[in-house]
Design a protein around this nucleic acid. Structure first.
Lengths: 201, 201
DNA sequence: TATACCATGTAATAAGTTACATGATTTG
DNA sequence: CAAATCATGTAACTTATTACATGGTATA
């Protein structure tokens, strides 16, 4: 159900067509709550049916139209009500840590490969999150800039501060995962003296 | 597909009936990869069909039987092959951080409530993970103890070290989430001077 | 005029969630 | 003999994944 609120959040910044919204999604809130286009379009239809957004057809070329969606009063209400509800935490399900727990069954080089992949994965994620953070801090993030312009009820300071806060948490998480995997590499080396060269990195 | 390997991992320690396995699951690897009984039993049937485990009926009372499952040679092979494959990282989908990003729309007391709930949630999780860690370290963890007894190819040291390593990562993650939420409380207070009492905790 | 990209999906599948169901057995 | 718990699920639903589909529009 979070996808709905992620989309509502985007539409509090400005009305958008489905396509623009999907694009904006992937470069902003999609970093926090992933969804493919094939999930976004049907959800938008359901949201119209439920009255939380409105869709109007706008001309596109000589014989085509596209739909521009805007949040309704009911949508604003649903969005703020959602913020008042407790979070439903997902169950723990962590494929990387699951494997790490049974590394005694893996070839030491295989274990090292998994840990290095973990570092690569979180290094890439970290770069993405840090990129968001930088753009939020210097106000070059296009969706944030637009939001600050159009939102009259909230201060630019507060709008940006909570987005910064969110991504800071992710960057710290990435750092923690990288540090954890490095310790794992050291552990594999310690348990398997004479294996591959100890990792420097 | 990870559920299958979590179950195989448990069965490398010893053969178990479905019921015992489900119970053991919930107090051990279920902390890393959650699954309800209603997912475990059907998966066991599929695993028998795929030949990675074998089920034998054992008498239970005068007129009933239960099934005892043991890992097969093919199962051991599937399990170790799984450790050789790269991890498929799930997409990011974080309901708590998603909300935090839009706290400017929330009543400050609502934002505080969400952040306090975050602290409570991770404090509880941390206690569970730390409990596992303590039991692993002093070798009182029943499944680990059994595993160390029955596993002739891996050293007790390595078996325990990787489980420790796994749970250490979770404990650190919990600490990070708690610290993050505390900073969030401070941020809400800073943006809303004169709101509720600043949090001490 | 071809290529990129705009626009919007559908279909099939997989995985996981919640609620409920049923009967046998052991134990106090 | 009642209660707990052992034992094993099924059904209905929701959510998400992957792959594919289709045609219009702008631009070089």
């Amino acid at each position: 159900m979070s996808l709905r609120y992620a989309l509502l959040a985007l539409l509090t910044a400005q009305p958008m067509t489905g396509y623009d919204l999907a694009k904006a999604f992937h470069v902003s809130v999609g970093h926090v709550w992933h969804a493919p286009d094939s999930q976004i379009y049907p959800e938008l239809k359901r949201m119209v049916a439920d009255g939380v957004i409105e869709g109007e057809a706008v001309a596109w070329g000589p014989k085509s139209t596209k739909t521009r969606y805007s949040i309704s009063a009911a949508g604003i209400e649903a969005f703020t009500r959602w913020l008042d509800e407790p979070v439903e935490y997902p169950y723990d399900r962590d494929p990387a840590h699951l494997r790490a727990a049974y590394f005694e069954w893996a070839d030491p080089d295989s274990a090292r490969a998994r840990l290095r992949e973990h570092i690569v994965h979180y290094t890439e994620r970290r770069a993405q999150w840090q990129g968001q953070l930088d753009a939020i801090r210097d106000r070059t993030h296009p969706i944030l800039a637009r939001r600050i312009q159009t939102d009259t009820r909230h201060s630019a300071e507060a709008i940006a501060a909570f987005k910064e806060f969110t991504y800071e948490g992710f960057v710290e998480r990435a750092d923690q995962e990288i540090a954890w995997a490095r310790r794992g590499l050291a552990l594999v080396d310690a348990l398997q003296p004479g294996g591959a060269e100890p990792d420097r990195g």
